[in-house]
Amino acid sequence: MRRPGPALLSWVEPRFFLLLTLSGLFSVVLRPRLLLNQLYSVGVLSFLIIFISGLFVGMVLGLQGYYILSDFGAEETLGLMVAASLVRELGPVVSALLFAGRAGSALTAEIGLMKATEQLSGMEMMAVDPIKRIIAPRLLAGLLSMPLLAGVFSTIGIIGGLLVGSGMLGVDDGAYWAQMQAKLDFYDDIVNGFIKSVVFGFVASWIALFEGYDAIPTSEGVSRATTRTVVNSAFSILGLDFILTALMFGDS
């Protein structure tokens, strides 16, 4: 296979960015050290914001849910309401939006700066493929971190809802758990929420990495790419959430 001509190559590369990256994922498996470093900067560094946001979202859900449910005398189902909204929607979606803001923008800025300071070019000159060495480990780290972060978010949210519901408002904590366990389905709710978070993690990391790799290599170009990452990720996450919800929870 001869390398294609210049016009073709410049057309091909952005479009096959994803394909090239996916083919690079295999080489990451052979070098866990690269993945571990990225799990740190993508996952661990996003943990705190996810933890705290999850706690507050759960507490607010507990409070608002209680006000509405107590009108119907249905405070006992508070646990179900908090858990269902977290597991199905808020956990995957809000943690993906936070992830795009925290890790996605950082990824774009990092890759964009590497491009602007000729680090990517320099790597190519050292016969190291930047897509394999830089992009692929980050995509994999994003893909793995997102479901874990969403799981933490939902768990902390449920506990936050319990703190408010049982601690402040006097909902029976036995009922809180029992209603949740009775009505939440493992396959319909937990697994679907998990699938959502995997999809969002993939899309958010992919957008962030592509925007960075595609950025105009100047300070202005990088800052614009960072903005685009957050905006495009938010759109894609919310749009995909609608589609996935329609597909998953459509008939049951």
Binding site: A83, G151, F153, T155, M180, F186, D189, F194
Partner: peptide, 13 residues
């Protein structure tokens, strides 16, 4: 993260 996912699977569903 894994503990969170386990928690959701076993305790919340």
């Amino acid at each position: 993260g894994i503990a969170g996912l386990f928690f959701l699977s076993l305790k919340a569903s």
